[in-house]
Design a protein around this nucleic acid. Structure first.
Lengths: 227, 227
DNA sequence: GTATCATTACGCTATGGTAACGTCACGGAA
DNA sequence: TTCCGTGACGTTACCATAGCGTAATGATAC
């Protein structure tokens, strides 16, 4: 039973036998660590290495299908097909679907573009516009539903996609305080939530907001932020 | 075959009724249409009538499982099992899963409790508290994901659960304007979105908010609303 | 020699949706 | 009251499909 895979990675059971997989729950990320730079100074590599173009094809396809179909409707087979890759190529890298999706989230991680227009209002407007064009409500929706079944996914999502952006916005407000544009006792995090939340709720109520929406929101809420 | 009425129909908004009429054009509806317009004058009923306890058991189970598992994971079989009902009893009422879920939404419809504390701040606080304890982010999430596949569901959700509440809150703000508590040029709908949206985003970022959260949000945003 | 690659197939389980069976509730007619 | 037709009831079985995860194969890259 012991998987015959002669995988050189001792600590990273990738897809072991059924029973081994149970214990493997503790060791996420099969071979993914390699992505963080091939430590292993010695050029160790028995056998053919993983193809990195396959890596990114899988991640790209998974991201695309996750957005389109949601978590539970996204199938490994469809990911493989979209990526023009065999299913085993996926299972070679990720133990199961949830691990793949976690990797996708990690891959797409935030990348909050550094926004600093010089004024708090300008920063907030830029963030709203960014959210309006990029924020993926559907992704948030499909992941939050998995809360009970896959809490790791929600944690990953929060820590990598939600919180960094909220903190970035809060930071813009804090800079505004230093410049005297924003009232000192404002709870920046709550303010950031109100802004981003407006977007979320707008999407829920009426669908994606149109151009000019960001300005209206900011005009409405700014009096609560201004010094 | 249009209607051999099978149901005595004592004002049962259950499956059919005006609410289900939304789907009437897409959906032939086996014998449900009759419920809201067919002649009940004559003691309409050939055969055994639908059991209303089964009606509500199905809706209750479906609601519960929809919240727990999300739309795509919720199965008809599990609904039947939870409701202690046979699958055919469900298919006798709804053509398919999406129609069942639409009926569930219709059934749970808003029921925005009339909130009127006498002050705009009091009303807003009450609404926030209500959302904090009752708003089902998971439901919103799972439905928004179905946007492309089942647009009717999203429409139903918006028109029955989201918009009525938003309008109720906006109404509270408008009453505040009349009393001079709220600034006249406030966009009430946007303000309502910011409040409810704060809740949504809070849930996404940190999970369900704790006690005291509503007050903090309101304290933060109120200056933007006040006259 | 080893481990990846794509392809194909397989076993298993879950699901949607339908059909058949015998039973039970109801209204209307005898 | 008795009987009958209608249609809902639960149960069980069934079909077709789809998904997950594994295995076998032959080729190919290190």
């Amino acid at each position: 039973m012991e998987s015959s895979s002669g995988r050189p990675e001792p600590g990273a059971p990738r897809h072991a036998g059924a029973e081994a997989a149970v214990f493997a729950r503790l060791a996420p990320m099969p071979r993914r660590d390699r992505a963080f730079e091939d430590q292993e100074p010695s050029g160790r590599a028995a056998g053919r290495p993983l193809d990195e173009t396959v890596d990114s094809a899988i991640l790209g396809a998974a991201w695309q299908l996750l957005l389109r179909d949601g978590y539970s409707r996204m199938s490994i087979a469809s990911v493989a097909e979209t990526a023009r890759v065999g299913k085993p190529a996926i299972y070679r890298r990720y133990r199961d679907k949830s691990e793949l999706v976690a990797a996708v989230i990690a891959d797409k991680t935030a990348r909050v573009p550094p926004i600093d227009t010089g004024s708090a209002r300008g920063d907030l407007l830029a963030h709203l516009e960014f959210a309006r064009r990029r924020f993926t409500v559907r992704l948030a929706g499909t992941l939050i539903v998995e809360e009970t079944k896959h809490p790791e996914l929600v944690r990953e999502f929060r820590e990598r996609m939600i919180l960094p952006r909220r903190n970035e916005i809060a930071g813009a407000l804090d800079r505004g305080k230093d410049r005297g544009e924003v009232r000192m006792d404002l709870d920046s995090a709550l303010a950031a939530q109100a802004l981003m939340g407006s977007f979320l709720y707008q999407y829920m109520a009426d669908g994606a907001p149109k151009k000019g929406w960001s300005e209206r929101v900011l005009d409405t809420l700014w009096p609560a932020f201004a010094a």
